[in-house]
Structure formats: C-alpha cells, structure tokens
Amino acid sequence: MTMHAQIQPAPQFGETPFTRKKRRNEMIAQGIFAVMVACIVIPLFLIVGYLIKEGVSLISWEFLTTNPTGGMRKGGIWSALLGTFWLVGTSLCISAPIGVLAAVYLNEYAKDNWFNRVVNLAVVNLAGVPSIVHALFGLGAFVLFAGMGRSIIAASLTLAIMTMPVIIASTKEALAAVPRQFREACWNVGATKWQTIWRIVLPNSVSGILTGVILQVSRTAGETAPIMFTGAVFYRKIEEGNLFAYGLGDQCMALSMHLFTVTTQVTNAPHALPFAIATVLLAFVLLVNLTAILFRSWLRNRKKW
C-alpha cells in the first residue's frame, strides 16, 4: 500500500509549461477530493458540536440517575438509560456466543462448497435486512408466536439477530488473521481441532472478537425501530440506583425510544431535553466505538506475527 504513495510527480527542475499545467491539474484534483472529504467530515463535527452545545446544560450526574418526572419534562433519564443497558447486555449474551461460534464454523470448519457460500451469503443478507423488517420479525416470532409478549427478552432477541453479522464479520476476520502455521503446529503435537481452536486460535484472536462485540454494543444501543413493537414503553418508573430494577419479562424504556417520544409526544418540554438525551445516546455510542477503534489499532501495532 505504501508503494504508490512514494511515487511522486516529476521534480521541480526542468519545468516546462506542460509539466506546470500537469502539476496544477494535479493540485486541482487533490483539492476537489479534499473538499469532498471535508463535506463529509465537517457535518460530523457540526452535528456533534451542536447537539452538545444545546444539550449540555441539562446533563449532570443527577440527570443520568433519576427517573423522568413532571410528564417527562423534568427529572432525568434513569429508566431509559438502564433499559438501554439491559437491552444491550441481554442481546450481547445471546449474540456473542452464537456469533463467535458461527464465525468459528465459517472460518475453521466450513469447506469451500456451495452450502457454505450460501451461509456466507445469508450472513451478508442478515446484515442488510432493514431494521423495520427485523421489528416485524421480532413481533411475529418472539412477541406473538413464542408468546414472550412485549418484553426485554423479546426485544433483545430481535436486536441480537439483527446485530449478529457485526460479530460474525469481525470474528471471522480476526480468526483468519491467525497464521495457519499456528494451527498446524498444534495439530502436529496431537491436539484435536477443537483443542487447537480453544487453546491457540481463539486466544490469538480474542482482541478482534472483542472489537466486534464492542461494535455490536454500539449498534444495539442506537436502534429504535426493532424495539418499538417488541419491548420498549413510553414510560416506566423504576427504582433509582438499582441496576436490577428490570427483569427479562418486563417492558423497559430505552434511550433511543425516549428521544423519539420526547421529540414527537411530550409537549412543552425544555428545549434542551431532547438535545441532552441525544447527546447522552451519541456520547455512549461514539465512546464505545472509539474504544473499539483504539483497541484495534493498539492490537495491530502489538501483533507479533
């Protein structure tokens, strides 16, 4: 990748009108592309900056740890925040083991045949199914067919299936990065396939797997559509400070849903309130993502092989 970067255009000496024009064109091309990137990058900063500016006045420890009061106009976001944690945690418990094992299958066991191409295709398509269709599925399968009702478990299952491709993709990548020689060495000393995977392959790719898990967390936390019909409620008061104030069979509030209801339903709320909720949600998601990114680059630098 560094190869072409080192190839520079003609040096300064012997510059003719032709090369000058060429150099100018080059500058223009670079300029155009730089502007395009700027058009993408600047909105991110503007948006984040604006949301924080408008919402920060409300955010405090108390805001995070008290229930909404006064018809959701006052108080904090505790029950929504905890609800999001529960949804994220529960769906993680479901999607992480299945996703990692699925990736193990695809990378270590699957032979290159039509069946496994279909499996891979299914993973890609699962990632591409619109979130609202996942919501329909969750409603049809978990809430109604399985009789779970609208509950944290039904919403989490929906979210888990929706975000599983994230874990599968990054685990697969991490497993593929473990050199084949590692496995061969292990097989040569008499280890079985699973032993090799458990003792050699997984420990050497644990970081990549964790990155996938972290990304799944951030994706789950921001989703709204899949939980709207499967387990999120408009309002629910829970015990403040108790992390186990929800149960799996309960319905819960969620940050993303709370932002939606406050913007569409709650009238005469302080101007800063939806911005504060958006800021908290965004901060959570971006921080989690940033952790994953930093973690990944740290690991890349550390890699010994």
Partner: peptide, 14 residues
C-alpha cells in the same frame, strides 16, 4: 448463565 441469572433477579424483585 447470561440469561438465567437475570431471570432469577427479575422474578425475585417482583
């Protein structure tokens, strides 16, 4: 355990 444990918590609180 991920699911089971929380189940117990959920029901006891009720």
């Amino acid at each position: 355990s991920g699911c089971g444990k929380k189940n117990a918590d959920g029901s006891s609180k009720k």
